[in-house]
């Protein structure tokens, strides 16, 4: 049973790798047809990518961006969690807050950039503001959904022991919403990674967005690819970490041996 599961996992990894190899292969062919400043060869992109990772002064930019992503997500998660708990308690609060969040969801990231530049001075604060505003609605709705999916039976059962609000929160609400929260983190991580580079256009003097802008000015396609890959790799790695946490936190779930 265990070996079969390992095999499927290896199979999946192999299939994913195969897909990427085909993509790289196609790009390599393009690089043979078109000039290198348009389509730099794959080995060059790889070496530039590795260069960023092993050069301290460049790696700092990646870490800075990673920090901004996490900062924004943590802020949105905290605010969204509080909002969701408040909305979850009362229909009135929901009727009041939900349309505002939906309205915010419709505002493009670039508009938040413009607002941030006009309203605020500090660069880090601007970035944080943009990151929070763009991920807050989704976070709130996802946590709210998880909260709403709470089992009425378990709620009654827990209430029959007459817990304090805090105990109810710890023993029932938290375990109920954890799966939803982990999914929300995964989804919002991808969004945040896309928004952060736009946010860094507010005049950041460091970070992946800043570096991308420089590659454009230098007309350096390989560099642009290398910096883009930093973000993609970052998202993949963090998502793997969240998946690992998920597998641990949801280990109580029955695994059906039969696939669909």
């Amino acid at each position: 049973m265990m070996t079969m599961m390992k095999n499927t996992r290896t199979m999946r990894a192999l299939q994913a790798a195969a897909g990427m190899i085909v993509l790289a292969f196609g790009w390599q062919i393009l690089s043979m047809i078109f000039p290198h400043y348009l389509f730099p060869p794959v080995p060059e992109i790889i070496s530039r990518t590795v260069e960023v990772l092993i050069t301290g002064s460049l790696l700092v930019d990646v870490l800075l961006t990673a920090g901004r992503i996490f900062g924004g997500l943590l802020g949105a998660f905290a605010l969204g969690g509080i909002l969701a708990m408040v909305i979850g308690q009362s229909r009135t609060a929901e009727n009041f807050v939900a349309p505002i969040l939906t309205f915010f969801q419709g505002i493009p990231a670039l508009s938040w950039v413009v607002f941030a530049i006009i309203w605020f001075h500090g660069i880090e604060f601007r970035v944080l503001f943009i990151m929070i505003m763009t991920t807050l609605p989704a976070f709130t709705f996802q946590i709210l959904d998880a909260f709403r999916s709470m089992s009425k039976d378990l709620f009654e059962m827990t209430m029959s022991f007459r817990p304090s609000r805090w105990t109810l929160f710890r023993f029932l609400i938290v375990p109920t919403i954890v799966p939803g929260i982990l999914t929300a983190w995964k989804v919002n991580l991808g969004n945040a990674a896309r928004v952060v580079v736009v946010a860094e256009l507010v005049g950041a003097t460091g970070g992946v967005g800043y570096q991308l802008l420089r590659q454009q000015q230098l007309f350096d396609m390989a560099g642009a690819m290398a910096w883009t890959l930093q973000l993609v790799l970052f998202v993949l790695v963090v998502q793997q970490v969240i998946t690992a946490i998920e597998n641990w936190a949801l280990r109580y779930r029955a695994v059906s041996e039969r696939a669909m």
Partner: peptide, 22 residues
Amino acid sequence: FQNDRLMPWRTALDNVLLGLQI
């Protein structure tokens, strides 16, 4: 209760402990 209403994330022991913990 008529149905067992166990918390799926708690082991048998932890489910029995719930009331005592509360």
